[in-house]
Every structure is written in C-alpha cells, then in structure tokens.
C-alpha cells in the first residue's frame, strides 16, 4: 500500500507540514496544515478545519449508496458544502440538515446544551421546572390519586417524590 502525501486540511491544495492535535468534546482530532496556512493565521483560527475532519469520518461515501435528492437550505447551502467546509451557512441550516447535526451531536456523546438560556428564549419556551416545583407538583398528584382511591398510582408518585426529596438532600 502506498501512503499518499497528506494534504493541508485547510486549503486542501498544498502538502501538510504541521500536525496539531485537538480535543473537541473529549474526542481527539488531528489537523494538518501547510506552511502557508500555518503561517497565515494562528491555529485557533483554523479550528473549524477540525470540523470537516469530523464529517470525513461520518460521511465517507459508499458507492452502494442510492442517489438521493440533495437538500438545499434557503441560504443556498447544500449538504456537500457543509461537509467540505465544516461550516453551516445560516442558523436555518441547523434545521434543514438536522441529520448532520444529530450525527455530530451523537458522535460527541449526545450531550446537549446546559448553559444559560437567553431571556428572549426563556419567554418563548416552556420553562424547565425546578426541583422544588416538581416536588410540589408530585405532592398535589398524590393527594389527587388518594382522593380518587388510586393507591397504586399514589404509591408510584410517592416513590418518585422520595427520590426527588433525597436528591434535594
């Protein structure tokens, strides 16, 4: 087997000279840059290149694959554009190409966002109930279940309640 000269992950035109290792969400990725790309910007600015190397792993095309109708986002972006550049074309792309997004998120362990919710989103979306609110809700449900003499259901709620109370400490 012959080894092909590794090309620059950024410009994909010149042979690579520098290889950087980077962990993204705990996954080790390699990025190879040519002399020019290495010189022209610092590695942080080449971060997106890691992305296309990720997609390379997901979507190595197989010849057996049936030819599908290619989706195009309203911004003009196609699946190929995203795979080749490692970048999405607009915020809508994340919906248009949800298959790519899901594959990416799953590859990185399936974890989702856990940071602060911006206020313009909170007001629009359903608020996640706090532990205390959940406990109050369960207490109400138990009362109702007992009232309607559905003791099995009440028992089930009681178990859930105990678990939450223990969690709250």
């Amino acid at each position: 087997m012959y080894t092909k000269q590794k090309m620059c992950d950024c410009c994909k035109q010149k042979p690579a000279k520098y290889v950087y290792k980077e962990y993204i969400n705990g996954q080790l990725l390699n990025i190879a840059l040519c002399e020019d790309c290495n010189e022209n910007s610092n590695i942080a600015e080449h971060y997106n290149v890691f992305m296309s190397s990720l997609f390379d792993d997901f979507f190595t095309p197989t010849f057996a694959e049936p030819i599908q109708m290619k989706k195009t986002c309203k911004c003009g972006c196609t699946e190929d554009d995203i795979i080749n550049t490692g970048r999405f074309g607009c915020s809508e792309c994340y919906k248009t190409f949800s298959n790519l997004v899901n594959a990416y998120v799953n590859k990185l362990g399936g974890k989702t966002y856990a940071g602060q919710m911006p206020s313009h989103v909170i007001s629009k979306s359903v608020k996640v109930p706090s532990l205390d609110e959940k406990i109050k809700e369960l207490q109400l449900k138990i009362q109702q279940a007992v009232k309607s003499e559905n003791y099995a259901l009440a028992k089930q709620y009681k178990n859930e309640l105990d678990a939450l109370v223990a969690k709250r400490g």
Partner: peptide, 13 residues
Amino acid sequence: FDPKLGYLTSCPT
C-alpha cells in the same frame, strides 16, 4: 439559539 444546541455558530465546534 436552539435550546438543545445552544448558540448556533458557523462552525459546529
């Protein structure tokens, strides 16, 4: 912004 993905960025990383 997407509640599951967070802030939507050009590069998904």
